[in-house]
Computed example of a mutant assay.
Amino acid sequence: MVSVPTAKLRREPLKKGNSIDHLAYVDVTPIIGREYPHAKLKDMLQAPNAEEQLRDLAITICERGVAFFREPQDDLTIEEQKYITDMLGKLTGRPAENGLHVHPLYNDPNNIPMADGTTDENMQVLKNLDKTHLAPYVINAEAAKKLYATMKNRPGANNEPRDLAREWHSDSLFETCPSDFSFLRMESTPPTGGDTLWASGYELYDRLSPAFQALLEGLTATCAQPVFRSACEAGGYPVMTPRGSPLNAGYAFAPSHPVVRTHPVTGWKSVFAGVGLHVSRIDGVHAYEDHMIREYVMRLITRNHDCVARMHWTRGACAVWSNVCTLHAATPDTHLVEGNRTGVRASGIGEVPYLDPASTGRREGLGLPRY
Rank of each mutant, 00 (worst) to 15 (best):
I349R: 01
L100P: 07
A50C: 09
T85H: 03
A115W: 11
G65I: 07
S280Y: 08
G267M: 07
G156E: 08
C177N: 05
N122M: 11
T119E: 12
A144G: 11
E203K: 05
R166A: 01
D120K: 07
N128L: 14
G343F: 02
R55W: 02
H328S: 04
A252L: 08
C62W: 00
V320Q: 07
A39V: 11
N18M: 09
A309R: 06
T196C: 11
V28T: 04
V239C: 13
D290Y: 03
G89H: 02
D195L: 06
L134Q: 13
V66I: 09
A135D: 03
V102I: 07
L126Q: 01
P191E: 07
I20L: 13
F181W: 10
L45V: 10
V279K: 00
S347T: 15
K15Q: 15
V275M: 13
A144L: 14
C325V: 15
D356Q: 08
K40E: 10
P113C: 08
M311T: 00
A7S: 14
P136I: 13
V102Q: 06
V2Q: 09
P155K: 02
P30M: 12
P191L: 14
D180S: 13
G348L: 09
H291S: 01
L366T: 12
P264Q: 05
N49I: 15
A149T: 04
T326Y: 12
R363K: 15
W321Q: 05
N153G: 07
M1Y: 01
E142D: 15
I31H: 00
M240T: 02
L100N: 03
N153P: 03
I20E: 13
D86M: 03
S359K: 07
M240N: 02
E364K: 13
V271K: 12
R154K: 12
T342E: 12
R299K: 09
A249C: 08
L23S: 09
H257T: 11
R185V: 05
W313A: 09
H328K: 04
Q213L: 10
L355N: 02
F272E: 00
G17A: 11
I112C: 12
E233S: 02
